[in-house]
Design a protein around this nucleic acid. Structure first.
Lengths: 210, 210, 210, 210
DNA sequence: CATGAATGAGAATTCATTCAT
DNA sequence: AATGAATGAATTCTCATTCAT
């Protein structure tokens, strides 16, 4: 069961923690379990991460670090907004597909109220919003209208993440295989859903103004 | 701080547990905290709910009980599918608005891997899917294609719930007031998003078949 | 080795803690040692005293509670100041003789810098000083001169307590038996030392004024 | 915060340890705290002092080394016993004034029951007693009567040390400034207290013999 | 000399649960 | 129906020390 000793201890702790947090939630996992699974002395957790919360901080930071990279050149003016959205969805899905547990931990523990990481979360999300607001404007929606920011962006992200989040539960109920074809189709569908959706809303708005 | 002794002890425990679980997560709350907040002896929790997990079970059951009621007559043939979706979104939003914490606990702890409640969750979600599959068919999509079930339904629900879930975080970042007008607009927007989206996808499909 | 189960658990914890703290110092004793020695479950310490520091607080409080009683009618105007001092020394010695460990713990840990008990200590000592200041005045010394308060009072108390404090060390070096006769003589000697001393200082002062 | 790197590492460790032990007690301080404060690698403590206890041993040894020097020529037959006592008190006060923390650590941890340093302590104190016994004899008291050794000597020392020991507590309660004038007066008062006291006791004894 | 990673034992505290009353 | 004391395991974290480099 124990993780292979191929990697550095610090990385092993991270990997194991991501996996366990994803399965049982941050509060549901003990440092002893992490340490034994990572084949590392318990004291090493405090040594490297200054406590259990430190691991979560590192995890969230890693997520947002990758995430930022993903969104770095989304608002490319040389592409049509439609292409941008499709590209973003594609990248997001591929990223979460490769780092499912990392994404799940971050998504699940984001509402956790810990003063120590509240600041960090707020900062990261602020940055995220700024990234997306440019795109929203290009669809003819008012980015200064905080409502759209608060609704459409999170909806899109949640739509993708939820899809991964409930897979263990879904597997028990319906017959699906989460292979490459599935993900291709997922990208297509989510993109289409939001593109048609946002276009529709924008058109509706223009009509009403008249 | 302690809950008023007006209600029965069992209900007080439930109320307090819902509130605390919503704030800190199931694993982050202790029975002693619940007991003291509910102004109830600790032993009463085992007495009424047979342990901490029993409270969570009761909470999830209560959620799905209400939830089922909400969706009871969604697939009403006398209404247009558009009206059905709009009604469903409206009812969902209003329900979550009134029972935010109950919904949050259920949504947050749903991926939790506890064998004791896994069965229950599967059963509840199965029922939920059946409710929605009729509606999906009426939009021209194949309900036997499990893909749509696995993607569109959860996306819709997640879009709504996520909106509530991240309010504490959002409040820190952007200026929004979650009043009645906000919720009216939320219903409109989510409905529009999915109606335009699903219509678009269905149209796309028809075009491709040709 | 374990304490007899004759008394209540809470009292057993106190008794054992006093004994162990006196031997090894507060920081040198663990709650597990206390619990096992008192034949009590470890959790009971938090249950009864809300943590290790709580035991120390209780100990110090008990000491000062008894101590106050001891000094209650020291400043008796019907007695000569000499009689008062002699009585005080007698009572103090007898008290410390009976509650050596309690006194040692309090005396040893008094300089401990713990914000939680600093207030309590200050309050207790303030009361103690007020008790003694009346007596000092009757010896012809100015009680508003904080110097005497800060020097003579503590010296007297320290003289008594130190005598008990270093007994284990002294026993190894010189041949003494700490029996009743010893304590009688101790009372006499300490009383004489301070009475002659204070009288001498007061006389010196009067002489200088001239 | 870290100690200046001007001195040798070993001395830095000593200095920091003395300061920290004086504040929090031997058992209340960790080697890591000492190491980081002294800006020294943790392993260096074992290297130089063979463990934490080794530091304490070194501290106590340093104290007694200085202390012996202080008392070296106290029993000078060319001076009157009164002058000797006065000189001793003066030297002691000045020494403790300059090395308060060193003295406090030694005084506080002296009753600590550690077999490894018990021997050393006994030896040091034996020497100390011999130094003082000559003086006691010159006051007309019987130095073979271990009682006086066990009571008067320790009382004198404790009177001085206690005065320094409770300064942090005293400062909170009464208004005193521990400046040079204060210490001059302290020397005078303590000397007078004991001189008058011992003379009185000796006179009393002579009277009784008659 | 000096380092920093690593160890295993032990620290205090809190956990959910149970039991006699 | 309800209490509060009691339990033993588990919690996170820190301890002094050592070792290979």
């Amino acid at each position: 069961m124990a993780a292979r000793k191929s990697k550095e201890p610090k990385q092993r702790i991270m990997d194991v923690a991501i996996s366990l947090f994803a399965q049982k939630g941050y509060a549901g996992v003990g440092v002893r379990e992490i340490a034994s699974e990572a084949d590392v002395n318990i004291a090493m957790i405090s040594y490297y991460f200054e406590g259990k919360l430190g691991i979560l901080k590192a995890i969230i930071e890693e997520f947002f670090c990758h995430y930022s990279e993903i969104l770095s050149d989304i608002d490319d003016q040389s592409k049509s907004p439609e292409e941008c959205v499709r590209l973003m969805v594609q990248r997001l899905v591929n990223f979460v597909k490769k780092n499912t547990e990392l994404a799940m931990v971050t998504y699940n523990e984001l509402p956790l109220d810990s003063p120590e990481i509240a600041e960090m979360k707020a900062e990261k999300i602020k940055e995220l919003i700024q990234r997306i607001s440019g795109l929203i404007r290009r669809f003819g929606l008012d980015p200064s209208d905080t409502f759209h920011i608060a609704v459409i962006g999170p909806s899109l992200i949640a739509s993708i993440l939820t899809n991964f989040r409930f897979r263990p539960v879904l597997k028990r109920i319906i017959k699906v295989e989460f292979n490459d074809a599935y993900h291709e189709r997922l990208i297509e569908t989510i993109s289409a859903l939001f593109l048609f959706g946002v276009h529709g809303i924008a058109a509706q708005k223009r009509k009403r103004r008249k």
